[in-house]
Amino acid sequence: MSLPPVTESDREVVARQLGRPPRAVRAVAARCPSGHPSVVQTSPRLEDGTPFPTLYYLTCPRLTSLVSRLEASGLMREMTDRLATDEDLAAAYLAAHRSYLAQRDAIEPLGTEVSAGGMPGRVKCLHVHVAHALAVGPGVNPFGDEALAALAADWPAGDCAR
């Protein structure tokens, strides 16, 4: 998946969204309906060479807040529990992990099977899964897709959709 490089304007918007300069940003991987970045693709290493396995990073403040509410509800624990009992879900999650690694390694291999968000054995960060789902589209990350479906009544809507 090739994305156009991030523009200086996008970098400025992301800095405002995050409240700090973004690190290792390569591209905008998804945008909110209003046009502002909602997900950025980052380099596998920070500028100082430190590995940074989070390839897709959620930046939209409204969406980030909504995902945080899902996390606080205990949804990640429920999702992780389902991995132990639903073979099809576990297989789909493993495939999402492998896809994530392949996309990251196509940019720069880190020499590790560690991806992000707890993949493939648990669900540790819904922000990562939502970012992944938005960046690559539906049908790749089952938990990102589920989280977006759970937020459908609230996002994209409101300030972020203007």
Score class of each variant (00 low, 15 high):
Leu18Val: 05
Thr112Arg: 12
Leu75Thr: 10
Asp88Glu: 14
Cys125Pro: 01
Leu148Pro: 03
Asp81Phe: 10
Ala30Val: 00
Leu151Tyr: 02
Arg31Met: 06
Ala133Thr: 09
Pro61His: 05
Asp145Gly: 04
Gly139Lys: 07
Val13Arg: 06
Glu78Val: 05
Ala91Tyr: 10
Arg77Lys: 14
Leu89Val: 12
Asp88Gln: 12
Leu18Trp: 06
Glu8Trp: 03
Glu71Asp: 12
Pro61Trp: 04
Pro61Asn: 08
Gly74Arg: 01
Pro37Ile: 02
Phe143Glu: 15
Met79Ser: 04
His127Gly: 02
Phe143Asn: 11
Val67Ala: 02
Arg31Thr: 14
Tyr57Leu: 04
Ser9Leu: 07
Val25Lys: 00
Arg26Val: 06
Asp88Tyr: 11
Ser38Met: 01
Gly19Ala: 00
Ala15Gln: 08
Gly137Arg: 09
His36Trp: 08
Pro120Gly: 01
Val114Thr: 13
Gly144Ile: 09
Leu151Asn: 08
Gly121Thr: 14
Ala135Gln: 03
Pro22Gln: 07
Leu58Glu: 08
His36Phe: 00
Ala149Cys: 07
His129Phe: 02
Ala133Asn: 06
Glu47Arg: 08
Gly117Arg: 04
Leu134Ser: 06
Leu126Gly: 01
Pro142Ser: 15
Ala147Arg: 13
Glu8Ile: 00
Pro44Ala: 10
His97Ser: 12
Pro37Met: 07
Leu70Ser: 09
Val14Trp: 04
Val140Gln: 04
Pro51Ser: 14
Ala96Ile: 10
Ser68Gln: 15
Leu63Phe: 06
Gly111Trp: 13
Ala131Ser: 08
Val28Thr: 03
Tyr56Lys: 01
Leu75Val: 14
Ala116Asn: 02
Ala24Gly: 04
Leu63Cys: 07
Ala90Lys: 15
Val123Gln: 05
Pro51Phe: 11
Gly117Pro: 04
Ala27Arg: 03
Pro53Val: 03
Gly118Glu: 03
Pro61Ile: 05
Pro51Tyr: 06
Ile107Ala: 04
Gly139Phe: 11
Pro22Lys: 00
Asp145Pro: 12
Glu87Trp: 12
Ser43His: 15
Ala149Pro: 01
Pro44Asn: 10
Leu89Ser: 10
Ala135Ser: 02
Tyr56Val: 00
Gln17Arg: 01
Leu75Asp: 15
Ala106Tyr: 01
Pro142Gln: 06
Asp105Ile: 12
Gly49Ala: 09
Arg82Asn: 11
Thr54Leu: 05
Glu113Gln: 13
Arg98Cys: 08
Glu87Asn: 11
Ala27Gln: 06
Val128Ile: 05
Glu108Cys: 13
